[in-house]
Design a protein around this nucleic acid. Structure first.
Lengths: 250, 250
DNA sequence: CGATAATTTGAATTAACTCAACTGTTGTGG
DNA sequence: CCACAACAGTTGAGTTAATTCAAATTATCG
């Protein structure tokens, strides 16, 4: 019952007509080059909620691009507690941290049913010798990762709980928008616990802040459903040291 | 008085006899390939203390490798306060975050007199088309950066002040050791303020912790001079949730 | 439908911060 | 060469933002 042999299926989801387009590796490649990239990409059955894409120590073979769904990456501390490192939405790549050591260094777990492209790294590297724009795009994607993480470090070190959560929500909104989804109305793929772990906050604090933001009419929360009512207000919480109270008067 | 024309000077400090060796880009390249890499590398006068290597918005031209000295990278918040992103010791590369946007996104300032190799990124990219191992090494270095930053995120989100500072000191020790310096006796190139900003702590907290670690006979501090007396004890502070008090009984 | 997990809310605690004073170091100019 | 200013670091005391612990409420899933 393996359907990996059905080339028809593969064609339907080929890079050339994938909606991720410029968000992904093929950016900057012309038609023929995309086809060559396409040949090495594996597309598996979707991962189910809580299924692992990879685990620490597992040897590094593939990079992954999320097509639909969401993935969280995390490590475990000595007591087995999760420390969330990041969330990966459609169009976002994961596995980049494993290139150096040839081993994955974290868990990657599907937060919901998730479809991914798996790209054998070695073949990708080979191919990029012939395709300068692929090589450049790989460096670009890694550079973006470094930038994002740097920003995150600056955020974590110097921001209050309010600023962190506001940043997080705005970041999610922008990432959904880039992917073609609504930036003001979306579902959180992760739990309060996961958000707290990612932002360095207790889950209770995250919950209280959602309530506060709602009281301030910045957004509407109902469990995982978020509706942003006042994007500028939210951004105001991030940058200005103004209290939440003074952000929205009326 | 420009001495960039003295090839003699350049030869003396060529990659092939640079003590950084395997820590740097040339890792994995054979003799001839190193020479080709060497040709594109610029070596400037050392930067003086507080001199900038680059600033935000400045267009991205070069990657930098620290040869001697130390560099800090930081951004500024709305009030002009520094948010330190990282420190760069000899053998460490900086500028990787600028590849994606073609603009630097942070300040890079010399903490002391600092010599660097400047590598024009475009020419590096061109060269790596011919030299697969150079291409691989670039990806490796970026991957290491992603890993390190991930680790930092996990540390900041889930660790006490004690654990953060202990981690920081151990990390410095390991980095000095890799570079051939003593891992137990070294000088901090940065201020308490910088350490605090990097670790998300007030400078007073950093100072108090140095005192506490000293009282626990984990190390000896005198201003910027650090002598690690009990490396295992320090590592114990990081991992175990045990109190500092119980780490060292005698 | 009942059990388990996720979330919300409240109250008490605490780790780290801010503010403030003091000490020691470094550099500068008379 | 010393005095003085500017800066970096230490130490103390009071404050606070966020935590932990606890309990109630609401979803989710077999």
């Amino acid at each position: 019952m393996s359907d990996t042999s059905f080339s028809l299926r593969n064609i339907k989801i080929a890079c050339s007509n994938c909606s991720l387009g410029a968000l992904c590796l093929p950016y900057g490649l012309d038609g023929d080059d995309v086809d060559r990239l396409d040949e090495i990409i594996k597309r598996n059955h979707p991962y189910q909620r809580n299924e692992f894409l990879f685990s620490p120590e597992q040897s590094f073979k593939n990079l992954y691009v999320v097509k639909t769904g969401a993935v969280k990456t995390y490590v475990q501390d000595d007591e087995g507690q999760e420390r969330v490192i990041g969330f990966h939405l459609p169009g976002e790549i994961l596995g980049l941290d494993a290139i150096e050591s040839n081993k994955h260094s974290c868990f990657a777990k599907a937060l919901e049913t998730t479809a991914v492209c798996e790209m054998p790294f070695e073949r990708l590297e080979d191919l990029s010798k012939d395709l300068p724009s692929l090589q450049h795009q790989m460096l670009r994607l890694m550079s973006r990762e470094v930038s994002n993480e740097s920003q995150m470090i600056a955020l974590l070190n110097h921001s209050t709980a309010e600023e962190r959560l506001a940043s997080f929500i705005v970041s999610l909104a922008e990432r959904f928008q880039r992917r073609g989804f609504s930036s003001t109305d979306f579902f959180l793929p992760m739990s309060r616990q996961d958000i707290g772990s990612y932002l360095g906050l207790a889950l209770e604090t995250v919950s209280r802040l959602f309530t506060r933001f709602q009281e301030l009419n910045l957004l509407k929360v109902e469990r995982k459903h978020i509706e942003i009512l006042d994007m500028d207000g939210l951004k105001g919480v991030i940058s200005h040291k103004t209290e939440c109270q003074s952000v929205k008067a009326s």
